[in-house]
Computed example of a mutant assay.
Amino acid sequence: MPELRWIKSSFSEEGGNNCVEIAAPSLDGIALRESESPARVLTTDRAALGSLVRSVKAGLSS
């Protein structure tokens, strides 16, 4: 995977390792990682991530 520009949520503590970071390796791809384990990267597409975010915001647990 090429060098990615990781973005941390503005809700995360400055300099803390307690957040999820996101990067866009391609036009349709999304990469996610936990700041405590940056070598472990999960990839998905924008539609799937968007669906997850909408569900979390709506308070759904499934």
Rank of each mutant, 00 (worst) to 15 (best):
S10L: 08
A47W: 04
E14T: 12
I22H: 00
G16M: 11
R33A: 09
S62G: 09
L27F: 05
A58Q: 15
S10W: 11
V53N: 03
S62R: 10
L49S: 04
S26H: 13
S35G: 11
G50H: 06
I30S: 04
E13A: 15
T43C: 03
E13D: 10
E21M: 05
T44R: 06
R40M: 12
L32V: 05
S37Q: 14
E3F: 09
N17L: 14
I7K: 13
F11H: 14
K57P: 00
W6Q: 12
S51T: 15
P2R: 09
P25C: 02
D28W: 06
V53H: 06
I22G: 02
E34K: 07
S37F: 14
P25V: 01
L27C: 03
E34H: 15
G59L: 00
E21K: 03
V56D: 05
L32K: 04
L42T: 02
M1G: 10
G59D: 01
S26V: 04
A23I: 01
I7R: 15
R54M: 03
C19T: 13
L52W: 10
S35T: 10
R40S: 13
S9F: 07
L32R: 02
I7F: 14
E14V: 03
R46M: 08
S9T: 09
G29M: 01
L60G: 06
E3A: 12
G59W: 05
E34M: 07
S10F: 05
P25E: 00
P38G: 11
I7P: 01
L52H: 02
R33W: 01
M1E: 11
P38A: 08
S55D: 14
R40P: 00
N18L: 05
P38W: 11
A58I: 07
E36D: 14
T44C: 13
L60V: 07
A23G: 02
K57C: 07
E3R: 12
I7Y: 15
E21Y: 01
A47C: 02
G50M: 03
R46Q: 06
L42Y: 09
P2Y: 02
S12C: 06
S37V: 13
T43A: 03
A24Y: 15
S10K: 13
A23V: 01
P25T: 02
S51Q: 10
G16C: 06
V56C: 14
E34S: 10
C19Q: 06
F11P: 02
I30T: 09
S61Y: 03
C19Y: 12
F11V: 09
P25M: 01
G59E: 06
A58M: 06
R46S: 12
S55A: 13
E34I: 10
S26W: 03
T43W: 04
C19E: 10
T43S: 03
S61D: 07
R46D: 09
L42F: 14
G59H: 03
K57T: 04
T44E: 07
M1I: 08
A58P: 02
M1T: 14
W6K: 12
A24K: 13
E34G: 12
K57E: 14
S10N: 06
V20K: 09
